[in-house]
Design a protein around this nucleic acid. Structure first.
Lengths: 346, 346
DNA sequence: TTGTAAGCGTTATCAT
DNA sequence: ATGATAACGCTTACAA
């Protein structure tokens, strides 16, 4: 059906090898021949079969994007859409394809990983949203598949890109301190994800830096969902905080509801700062002051790092942190001129 | 490095073909041999090289998901996340991989399509979110790549799955009529997308069915973004509608802001019904009555249809419409018992 | 039931 | 500068 190299060669009156050379821009081809071959290629609409090429070169031009989804987040969060956009754009630019694998937390998870990793389809991989105990990264290391993690990782061998979760959280909390709040609580994210850990660490750092005590009754935990935000807010109310730093917007939305029902005014009685700057943050009442992260750039960076790894023998291990910035709206209680103010992002 | 069939065969003391037969579950293999071979496979951790297999079988087990993104929607809308989830789940179940291609509206768009379609990597494709003039579907037809469209399509040769946009819109508007509204306006979606067209058609049908006039000054157009919703709402205010059906939630959020600033109360002065039921719909003030669509099922269905096409010689052309349902909250002005009421979804 | 051998469509290493 | 020819790792007639 579709043309092969062989046939193009026949049409051009040369050998297979010459056509292959032309296609791959090899230097040693007579310009006359080159021209003739290109002519045939264009006329015939010939397109090399990448599968055959992959078999011969052991390169597929495919990178895998593997996301062990934690069920909840994917649904409501534009994080993945944006990340994929950043990845896609770079892939297109470098003539790579992207094989996407969302792996739900099922019993046969490992199977799915193995099928993918050992398939031979992937030149490399980008992994995002792993929990600390997920077997994916160890599996990738074992299979010797070049990869980069979106999200910091402890293992010294792992290349990663991340946003500055700790710094963002610290700035958020320091903003509250600057506004005179002293009993600052937090609704932390899941502690089996580094983003959850780091945002909590940033909270602690800010308090310590300003000599404020770290009070365990002011720390509640959620799993990034709205419901968990509600539950956590309920717990915190009895400790009478005058501000809460919440590890993501969705939990803040939940907290907002609970606080309102409890008759507490935001920001007058309790000031709120959240994290993520999803579209929803600007829309709730009052609009959320929140930490914005460059998600799309994060995806793009991940691809660049991966391509660098693929391009040559081991360079140093990449560890890249992108800055975050604080978007000031009304929930923190600051008086402002414009619609919103952006702070930081060094 | 990695094991090949040949080596497994040697270890098991049989020929390559026998190992191949075992792996592919061919019937005519002695159970003793089969056992021995499986043993070696398991011990050695052998995994067939799919690239080589693809070259031999002319099947890659990869389906392409191609989304010509209209820039705006992808950012804010969980539609894609959910769609991808539905697709992924079915792919995993059927041992297929998914190659994702988000194609921005760039000049070199066609190039990207061609590179992908003629690569030979795709057994078939799922396309979503195309505008009516996008060259993607014609290209797929020309290249004879089996595909299914997420979203209705006029061409008789095209298999598609869609949600009942028209029916959903009609129910939404009829709900407003049932509540006594008579000057019902609409903010329609982009008319170069069938979803935009169909939701407008449903609006018209509902009015006609109830002998209400179709008033051009009560129809404004947006592009599914919040800003366009604001602009459209501004236009409509001068026509003094007592209700607005808005083709998606994001535009409704924009409209809500404009109406509030104009001193109009929702739902007392103007009732609102939207479309999509994104998380944001439940969170704004007042919460939006909106049409919910089974996006995840839509993705799953698309895969099933595609696999059916791939499985055999041309069956009939699939045209599948999934039902929508109305989620009644406060923006339409109905008095309700519980937190929200769901209607329809036949 | 098993083995031999001819593809699948490229790239890459030799000669020439 | 060009052409044979041997890989690449698998499937699949066809033989035995």
């Amino acid at each position: 059906m579709r043309l092969t190299l062989e046939e193009v060669a026949r049409l051009a009156g040369v050998s297979r090898s010459t056509v292959s050379r032309v296609i791959n821009d090899h230097p040693n081809v007579h310009s006359k021949t080159r021209e003739r071959v290109w002519h045939v290629i264009r006329e015939s609409g010939y397109q090399p079969n990448v599968v055959a090429r992959s078999l011969a070169t052991n390169r597929t031009q495919i990178i895998g994007v593997i996301i062990p989804e934690t069920v909840t987040r994917l649904f409501t969060d534009p994080f993945f859409s944006l990340l994929l956009r950043g990845i896609t754009e770079r892939c297109n630019a470098h003539l790579y394809h992207m094989l996407l694998s969302l792996v739900p937390p099922l019993p046969n998870k490992r199977e799915i990983y193995h099928r993918l990793l050992r398939s031979g389809y992937l030149d490399g991989a980008i992994v995002a949203s792993t929990t600390v105990d997920d077997p994916l990264i160890p599996d990738l290391l074992r299979e010797r598949i070049p990869f980069v993690s979106v999200g910091r990782h402890e293992d010294k061998r792992v290349h990663w890109v991340d946003v500055d979760n700790t710094g963002g959280a610290r700035i958020a909390v320091e903003h509250l301190i600057g506004l005179g709040r002293r009993r600052i609580a937090t609704i932390a994210g899941p502690q089996d994800m580094v983003a959850g850990q780091d945002r909590l660490a940033g909270y602690r750092q800010a308090l310590s830096a300003h000599n404020l005590p770290i009070d365990k009754t002011l720390i509640a935990y959620g799993d990034f969902t709205e419901e968990s935000g509600m539950t956590a807010a309920c717990q915190l109310i009895s400790s009478a905080p005058d501000a809460i730093f919440i590890a993501n917007d969705m939990m803040a939305v939940g907290a907002l509801k609970v606080l309102r029902e409890a008759g507490l005014r935001v920001p007058q009685d309790v000031a709120l700062v959240a994290f993520d700057d999803m579209p929803i943050a600007a829309v709730v009442e009052p609009p959320l002051t929140t930490v914005r992260q460059p998600v799309e750039r994060l995806g793009a960076k991940a691809v660049e790092v991966l391509l660098d790894i693929l391009s040559g023998p081991t360079t140093e291990v990449h560890r890249i942190t992108l800055p975050t910035e604080l978007v000031i709206r009304l929930s923190c209680g600051i008086r402002k001129q414009g619609k919103e103010v952006v702070v930081g992002g060094k």
